[in-house]
Simulated scan of single mutants.
Amino acid sequence: MQIVVTLDCLDTEAQAGFWLAALAPLGYRRGFEGPPYLSLVGPAPAPTLLLQQVPEPKQGKNRMHLDLDFDTEDLDAEVDRLKRLGAQKISEEQSEHGFRWVVVADPEGNEFCVFDPPSSLGSA
Rank of each mutant, 00 (worst) to 15 (best):
A87C: 07
A105K: 10
T12W: 06
L75E: 11
A22M: 07
Q59P: 00
F18S: 05
A124I: 03
G17L: 05
G98K: 11
R100P: 07
S119V: 08
D69H: 12
V103A: 02
D69K: 04
G42S: 10
D69A: 02
E33P: 05
D106E: 11
K89C: 10
D11C: 04
A22V: 08
P43Q: 13
K83H: 05
F32V: 04
D116C: 10
L40E: 06
V79K: 12
C113D: 13
E56D: 14
L7Q: 15
P35N: 14
C9H: 13
E92K: 15
P117A: 02
P107L: 09
N110T: 05
C113L: 03
L40C: 07
Q2P: 01
R100F: 03
K61I: 03
R100T: 09
G34C: 06
L10V: 09
K61D: 11
Y28V: 00
V5T: 07
F18W: 09
D11N: 15
S39W: 07
Q15F: 03
V4C: 03
Y37T: 07
T72L: 07
L51F: 00
D106H: 06
A87G: 10
L121P: 01
Y28H: 08
Q94C: 08
A24Q: 14
V102N: 12
S119R: 15
L7D: 01
E33C: 03
A105R: 11
D67Q: 06
T48F: 04
A21C: 03
Q15I: 07
L20P: 00
S119G: 03
A77M: 08
L121Y: 09
E33S: 10
L50G: 00
R100Q: 14
F70T: 08
E93V: 06
K83I: 08
G122S: 08
D71M: 02
V104W: 02
D116T: 14
L66K: 06
P118H: 11
E96S: 09
M1W: 07
A77T: 10
L7N: 05
P43Y: 09
R100E: 13
K58Q: 14
L66Y: 00
V104D: 06
L20V: 02
Q88R: 13
D8C: 05
K58M: 04
H65T: 04
R100N: 11
D80Y: 00
Q15Y: 07
H97V: 01
E13M: 03
G31W: 04
V104G: 02
D76A: 11
G109Q: 12
V54L: 04
G60W: 09
L121I: 04
M1R: 15
E33T: 08
V79C: 13
G42D: 10
E93W: 00
R84W: 02
I3P: 01
Q52R: 15
G122H: 06
L85A: 03
E33V: 02
A105N: 11
Y28S: 08
P57V: 08
V5L: 15
E73Q: 15
V54S: 08
A44L: 07
A22P: 04
S120W: 10
S39H: 10
G98L: 02
G60F: 04
K83R: 15
G27Q: 08
A87Q: 01
A124Q: 12
D8P: 12
E56H: 05
E93Q: 15
L121H: 09
I3T: 12
C9P: 07
L82G: 03
V5Y: 09
Q88D: 13
I3R: 12
R29S: 12
E73K: 12
